[in-house]
């Protein structure tokens, strides 16, 4: 597992990719700072809905994770190096799991730092709220990562399909159609945030923390299992 993990870390840390991720991750922080200095800025509730919910959990986090996760398998399928791994006597889960872990290792710190700084600036050192935002962001990263790693394995157009998913599902339907939220990663990430600090995030839609934790586990484990299944059955180029 260590070999696949280290290989994937090296594959996914190209300069351009990291630069794009840095810019994306900095955006919520910059916008929060601008909002704080703007007298016509909205209320705290609006900030939580717009910046934490729609922007960080619904856009920035999935975009950053997509840029990394889709390439975890996608690049190997494209340049045909995946065969190096699949012709090794390694159980398929020992290929899929380190790919997922490497994706989280790279994308996680960007989003975690972005969430931490955004919450710290916005809530003026309200540490319970800051920690809740940061942890839920990391869980969101893990859920998105599992989904997009699988997507990179099943589609040669993973980036395009992933973008459609982020814009249409997470950004549009999950924001306006209440039933669609039940199938939205963003919704459960926010629910976790609420569960960890209900005082601060009382205004956000939520399910219980237990339910959100179970769903997060099912999403991460489920898409990981689908990746393993795909590795076992696919024709490796």
């Amino acid at each position: 597992m260590r070999s696949v993990y280290l290989l994937t870390l090296r594959q996914l840390t190209g300069k351009w990719r990291l630069a794009i991720m840095t810019v994306l991750a900095a955006m919520p922080v910059i916008i929060t700072v601008l909002m704080l200095h703007d007298e016509s800025a909205g209320s705290v509730d609006q900030f939580e809905q717009a910046i934490l919910g729609a922007m960080l959990a619904g856009s920035i986090a999935p975009l950053v994770v997509l840029a990394i996760a889709a390439a975890a398998f996608g690049n190997e399928v494209e340049d045909r190096t995946l065969a190096n791994l699949t012709i090794s006597p390694v159980p398929r889960w020992k290929i899929a799991l380190p790919k997922l872990l490497a994706t989280i290792t790279i994308a996680g710190p960007f989003i975690a730092l972005s969430a931490l700084l955004t919450a710290h600036v916005a809530f003026i050192a309200d540490w319970p709220a800051t920690i809740a935002v940061t942890i839920s962001a990391i869980v969101g990263v893990a859920m998105y990562a599992s989904l997009f790693v699988w997507l990179g394995l099943v589609s040669t157009q993973a980036i395009g399909v992933g973008l459609l998913y982020i814009v249409l599902w997470e950004g549009f339907f999950a924001g306006f159609v209440s039933g669609a939220r039940m199938l939205s990663v963003r919704y459960y990430a926010i629910a976790l945030m609420h569960a960890m600090d209900p005082r601060r995030f009382a205004t956000l839609d939520h399910v219980s923390g237990v339910t959100a934790s179970i769903v997060a586990t099912v999403v991460i484990g489920g898409f990981l299992a689908l990746s393993v299944r795909r590795l076992r059955r696919m024709d490796v180029p």
Binding site: Q11, N84, I87
Partner: peptide, 9 residues
Amino acid sequence: VMSEHETVY
């Protein structure tokens, strides 16, 4: 197994 493609990093 050595495939026909240059599967190197």
